[in-house]
Each structure stands twice: as structure tokens, then as C-alpha cells.
Design a protein around this nucleic acid. Structure first.
Length: 682
DNA sequence: AGCACGCCGACT
DNA sequence: GTCGGCGTGCTC
């Protein structure tokens, strides 16, 4: 067959694993000028009339002319020089080149690491098209490129130099991070700061903004990635004070599609920008990327809930390698994952100059003179401190979220069930166990209610509402403010108030809390998960960082290494100990893991090839709900690429093969599912 | 997904 | 001899 002219290599936007490679199409003459890498295209697929959406990845010469360079990092050696007859490109959707080469390379690599589809990553990276927004952007670009681009690539409005750049950190640490492309793990200064505009934010947010402004001054872009919108608001407030407003793009799945697309398109401009957003911001296009800064990488919101479930931390690590930019993980605590990278020497460590930290007092439960305080499960020392502080300003009580470890209550009067010897809360160690005291361990074999003499227990989850009631009685006359998922309060004045908040929902008071009580520690730790310790320490440190200078932070009813790590403000000692344990057990993140779920036959077929992967072992398979079984494979990081490649091949084989037997019309045949690095796995 | 290709039972 | 069943595989 004779072929001349140009060939478009196209990624089909489809969730089907069989289609996750590049397809070659002939570029018709009339599309030659529009068909450039990154544009959205429509292409015929199989039979005429069917068209699929896709992205033009690259333009190459026809195979018999010079192949213009192999596609970087693709897994489609088969189609690199497709020999069949080529169909023509159907159309180019618009001239906006929305998928940049850097984002494509990132999506391909991130998907390959997780045995997933590149198009699933691209869906996170490129928001849905909004025709009006795109037309406006194209029109504006047409008028500005003629003038502005010719003038200078640097921002026209010079940002004011930072007044006290990185005042909290040693000279030569963060100020040179962008220029020297450093990879760092940064301990955040656990304090609040008041901005000129009147907002109070965590100092960490200001540090993030300072880093981005430093990059901007060097003519380079930044990605600032934070878990939720409350964190975004804090960084945004700091950026408002430090950076020109038109150099900041906020990328947030919460905003309306039009706003989201507008912010995305702004990132495509050939000028340095600051991109602020949640986990998907790690995939934002950026001109000359100089910095990726990720706040609080242990927050579960950094984990992507959509297949292939790639954590923002992992995507950031891949992107840093491709862009050769600075990469900083900032937090009040250190995750085990980051600790591993520190011990490998991959990340350097930076701490604030001064070792200032909140005064955390582990407080054991003891007999309380006040009846109501006892009912509200507050020890006397903590109750006293809170009562004194409440004279002068806001006091925070952090409680477990409803639905955490369930509590036991009296079936007749609905009041929380208390241990008859120590007044501690009763709980169930396991579903089948006898109720016992969470504090002293005494079995509540012949329990009776102290309020109504009832003898029957029921399981309840105690929300902020009930806690507020109890605490209100313990602190009569106090103004009570509830902050949880349903009642969101962001900012708070300096007036006295008793704030009852679930973790993560604490409002930020101007000047900080004068006392903080961390309650329900046992309930948080009662959860069965590998990560309860890490999660709880992270939550406690983040909350303690809201304390006013010199304020007491009381950790109630929790001792041991967690309390020591908090009290000495050395959370990395906990991370190091935890990592040592995981190495011993061969648990992640000492090794990587993947779960393989499907019918017994499908799972067995997927596992056969894996036995030649170096260092890999298989746990299970075990039953995972009637027709399904689940196996877990563990493998060293060095074997990750091979494991992912083999499992992806198994997924493709399975997808091509699976057919629903016609006897059962509504029961779709279960697909083989593979999930890498699931944090909830063990 | 959708649609074509292909290899075995009852029909003009 | 052929029409069509749906199991199998491919889509540039």
C-alpha cells in the first residue's frame, strides 16, 4: 500500500483497556494545519459512521518515510508502525491544544505504573470542554499573542519582593529550593498568622505561597496541592497578599465546569503561573514547571477515588522526575511514605529555625470533682484548663466523627454507657466480644445503667450534637459553636466560645485557641487499620497547630509512643518506628502491593505470569463475596513496572474475552479488577 | 462497547 | 447445498 503525507497518532478517549494505545490515522489535506499535538479530535473506529473522541498525541511521517522519533513511554510497540490501511481523521474539534506533551507523558507513565488507562488520568487532567469558554479564550489569545508574547514572557506586573522571605527557616534551605530543584520534606511551623487583610491562616499556607512567589520571580510555574477547599482558602489568602492576582489559577473540581475550564485554559498560557488546587492539580499544565509543593500528604483526600486510584503524592513524584523541578512535601507530621523517601536519601529534611511547638499535655482520666465534666468524659486537669481559658477566648474540643468506632448506650434512656468502676466508655473490641471498658478493660458482664437502671445495651454513634449537649452542661454559660461536616465554620473571632468540632472541621480563630482538648482518642485508635496511629497523630498535630502561643493542648486518655511523639513534637520518630515495623512485616510502603479481584479462574489466569517477577509473592486468593476472590501481590519497588505491565496484559486479555452468558441477562460478567497501592488494603 | 468474521445444526 | 446461531476478536 502506498502512503504519503502525515500520520496522526491518537489516543482514544475510552475506558476500555483494549483501546489504551495509540491509533494511527491519515491526516487529510484540509486538516493539515489544525492537526497539531494536543488538540481534541474525532476519529472513525472500526466501521464507518462510528466516531470516537480522542486526543492527537503526535504527528509523524507515514511509516515508509522517516519515523519522527519514537513515542516516549508508550506501551504500544505493536502500533508504532501500523502496517494496515489508515482511515482518515474525521475532524479536529478545536484548535485549542489542551493536552500538552508534558501532561501526556505524565498521564502515560502514571497510568502504566498503576496498570490503568491513560485516558482515565487525562480525564482528571483535562476538564470537560465548554465551548463558549473555549471560544472566548481562543479569541483573547489571538489578540494578545500578537502583542504581549512578543514583549516578554515574564509577568508584566512585578510582584513586590517578599518582606521577610522564609523567616521561619534557615537561610539557604527554602529560599534556594526552586532554583536548585531540591526535593525536600519540610516540617511546617505549627503556628497561625494574621494577614494584613484580616484573615488568620496557618503559617504553612504562607510558606507555600512564599515558595510559589519565589518560583514566579524566577519565571517559573508552581503547583500548590492541598487536600480540601478550606486549605485552598488559606493558601489563596496568602497568595492574595503576595502574588499578582492574574498569575494565580485555582483548579478545583468543586467549581462550576465553566470556571474550571477557564482556569485550566489559563494554565496553558506561555507564561509562569501559580496553580492552586486539590489532588487533580498535580496534572495541571504549567509553563516551565519549577515547583510542586504538596501539603499534608497523609490526608486521605489526596487519594484519587477514581480508577486507577493514583495518589497525588505518587503522581507528584513521577512528575518531578519528568519535569526536573523542585518537589516539597510540607506537613505538621511525616507520613511513613515520606519517611521512606527520606531514609533513601531521595528527600532532604528541612525544619523551622526555632523549635517552637504547642504545649501538649497527655492527660489520663482521673476522678473529676464536677459531675457534668465526668459525664462529658473530661478529666479534671483538662476541665480546669478549659474553664480558665474560656474566660478569655475560644476553646476547642475535638471529638471523633460520628460513625467512627461506635459507642455503647443504654437501650432505654439512650445515654452513653459508662464503666461501673471507672466511668470510662464501653465498647466492643470485636463484633462478637463482650462489652468492655475502653479505659480500664473491665468486662461489663452484668452492667446496669446509672441513669435509669436499664440493663440492655445498644450500639450508637455519638455525634457532635450530643457531645455539645453534654459539654454545654459541663461549661455552663459558655457560647457553644458546633463545627462538623454539616455545620461548616471557617473563621472565628477572638471572643470566648466553646467550639466543638470533628477532626478536620475546626474553624481557625483569630489569634488561636487558648486551650484545646483532644477527646475520644481511644475511639479514634479503636479503628482496625494499619494507619490509625499515623492518622490520629496527624489529626492531633494539625489541630494543635491552631493553638495560641503558650496555650495548653490536652490529649485525653492516650499514652505511649503516640503521646510522646506529640508531646515532644517529633512526629518523624513515630514515622521512623512505623516504617521499621512495616519493613519487618513486608507491608507497604516498605514494599508495593496490588490487589487482584475477579472470578477464581480470572484471578488465577492473571497470576500465572507473575511468578517470574523478582521478589514478588502472592497472598491468597481469599473469598471476596460470592463469585469473586481477591489475591494480594507484594513486590519491591524495582519490580513495579514489570508487575504493572503483566497485570495490564491480563486485564486486556480478560476484557477481550469476557462475555455474559445469555442465561443471565441482568448479571454482567464481573471484570478482573486490579488496584495498586490501596492504602486501606492491609 | 459495538460490530464483523467464522464455524456447526435445520431449512427451501 | 445454504441461512443463521452466537462464540471470538478487533477497532488504526
Amino acid at each position: 500500500m502506498t502512503r504519503t503525507g502525515l500520520v496522526a497518532r491518537v489516543l482514544i478517549d475510552s475506558p476500555l483497556p483494549q483501546l489504551d494505545h495509540l491509533f494511527d490515522y491519515r491526516i487529510p489535506e484540509e486538516l493539515a494545519t489544525l492537526a497539531v499535538p494536543g488538540v481534541r479530535v474525532r476519529v472513525p473506529l472500526r466501521s464507518a459512521g462510528r466516531v470516537a473522541d480522542g486526543y492527537l498525541i503526535e504527528v509523524v511521517g507515514a511509516p515508509d518515510s522517516a519515523p519522527a522519533g519514537a513515542a516516549a513511554g508508550t506501551l504500544d510497540g505493536l502500533t508504532a508502525d501500523y502496517q494496515g490501511a489508515l482511515s482518515p481523521l474525521d475532524s479536529v474539534v478545536s484548535e485549542a491544544a489542551v493536552l500538552t506533551p508534558a501532561v501526556w507523558a505524565l498521564a502515560r507513565r502514571v497510568a502504566d505504573r498503576a496498570a490503568g488507562n491513560a485516558s482515565d488520568i487525562i480525564r482528571l487532567a483535562v476538564p470537560p470542554r465548554q465551548v463558549r469558554v473555549e471560544k472566548a479564550w481562543l479569541a483573547a489569545r489571538a489578540t494578545t499573542t500578537a502583542t504581549a508574547a512578543a514583549v516578554a514572557p515574564s509577568p508584566d506586573a512585578d510582584p513586590a519582593p517578599l518582606a521577610f522571605p522564609f523567616a521561619d527557616y534557615p537561610a539557604g534551605s527554602l529560599d534556594t529550593a526552586v532554583a536548585e530543584r531540591k526535593r525536600l520534606c519540610v516540617a511546617a511551623e505549627p503556628a497561625l498568622m494574621l494577614l494584613p487583610g484580616g484573615d488568620t491562616i496557618g503559617r504553612w499556607a504562607h510558606t507555600m505561597a512564599e515558595l510559589a512567589v519565589t518560583a514566579l520571580a524566577e519565571g517559573r510555574s508552581s503547583l500548590l496541592i492541598v487536600p480540601d477547599y478550606r486549605d485552598q482558602d488559606q493558601v489563596q489568602a496568602a497568595l492574595d497578599a503576595l502574588a499578582p492576582a492574574d498569575s494565580v489559577s485555582r483548579v478545583d473540581a468543586r467549581q462550576p465546569n465553566a470556571d474550571r475550564y477557564r482556569a485550566f485554559l489559563a494554565c496553558l498560557a506561555p507564561a509562569p503561573r501559580i496553580v492552586l488546587g486539590n489532588r487533580s492539580a498535580v496534572y495541571a499544565p504549567a509553563h516551565d514547571l519549577g515547583l510542586i509543593a504538596l501539603w499534608d500528604d497523609g490526608d486521605p483526600l489526596h487519594g484519587e477515588p477514581l480508577s486507577p486510584y493514583v495518589h497525588a503524592r505518587d503522581a507528584a513524584l513521577v512528575r518531578q522526575g519528568q519535569a526536573d523541578c523542585a518537589l516539597l512535601f510540607l506537613g505538621h507530621t511525616r507520613t511513613v511514605e515520606v519517611q521512606r523517601l527520606v531514609e533513601l536519601g531521595w528527600l532532604g529534611e528541612v525544619r523551622p529555625t526555632r523549635n517552637r511547638h504547642p504545649r501538649v499535655i497527655p492527660t489520663d482520666f482521673q476522678a473529676t470533682p464536677d459531675q457534668q465534666a465526668r459525664a462529658a468524659r473530661i478529666p479534671s486537669a483538662a476541665w480546669q484548663a478549659a474553664r480558665d481559658a474560656l474566660q478569655h477566648g475560644p476553646v476547642l474540643v475535638q471529638v471523633a466523627s460520628p460513625g467512627y468506632a461506635p459507642m455503647l448506650a443504654c437501650q432505654s434512656c439512650k445515654k452513653a454507657a459508662r464503666c461501673t468502676t471507672c466511668q470510662g466508655p464501653l465498647g466492643l473490641a470485636s463484633a462478637a466480644a463482650l462489652p468492655s471498658c475502653r479505659w480500664c478493660g473491665a468486662l461489663a458482664a452484668d452492667w446496669s445503667c446509672t441513669h435509669c437502671e436499664g440493663t440492655k445495651l445498644r450500639v450508637v454513634t455519638l455525634g457532635t450534637g450530643r457531645t455539645a449537649e453534654e459539654l454545654g452542661r459541663a461549661f455552663p454559660g459558655a457560647r457553644v459553636i458546633i463545627a462538623d461536616g454539616d455545620h461548616q465554620v471557617q473563621q472565628l473571632g477572638a471572643a470566648p466560645a466553646l467550639v466543638i468540632a470533628t477532626r478536620g472541621a475546626e474553624p481557625i480563630p483569630a489569634g488561636g485557641y487558648l486551650a484545646i482538648l483532644l477527646l475520644d482518642g481511644e475511639r479514634m485508635l479503636a479503628r482496625e487499620s494499619l494507619r490509625v496511629g499515623d492518622d490520629s497523630l496527624r489529626a492531633w498535630c494539625n489541630t494543635a497547630a491552631l493553638a495560641a502561643p503558650g496555650a495548653s493542648v490536652m490529649l485525653v486518655g492516650v499514652g505511649g509512643t503516640l503521646a510522646r511523639a506529640l508531646n515532644s513534637w517529633q512526629p518523624e520518630t513515630h514515622a521512623a518506628a512505623e516504617l521499621a515495623d512495616r519493613r519487618q512485616l513486608r507491608f507497604p510502603p516498605a514494599v508495593r502491593v496490588a490487589s487482584v479481584t475477579g472470578t477464581a479462574d480470572d484471578v488465577a489466569a492473571a497470576l500465572v505470569d507473575l511468578d517470574r517477577v523478582a521478589g514478588l509473592d502472592v497472598l491468597g486468593p481469599v473469598d471476596a463475596g460470592d463469585p469473586l476472590v481477591r489475591a494480594i501481590v507484594r513486590f519491591p519497588y524495582a519490580s513495579g513496572d514489570e508487575t504493572a505491565r503483566l497485570l495490564k496484559a491480563a486485564i486486556v486479555r480478560n476484557a477481550a474475552r469476557r462475555r455474559r452468558p445469555k442465561g443471565a441477562p441482568f448479571r454482567a460478567a464481573p471484570t478482573l479488577k486490579v488496584r495498586f497501592d490501596d492504602p486501606e488494603l492491609l
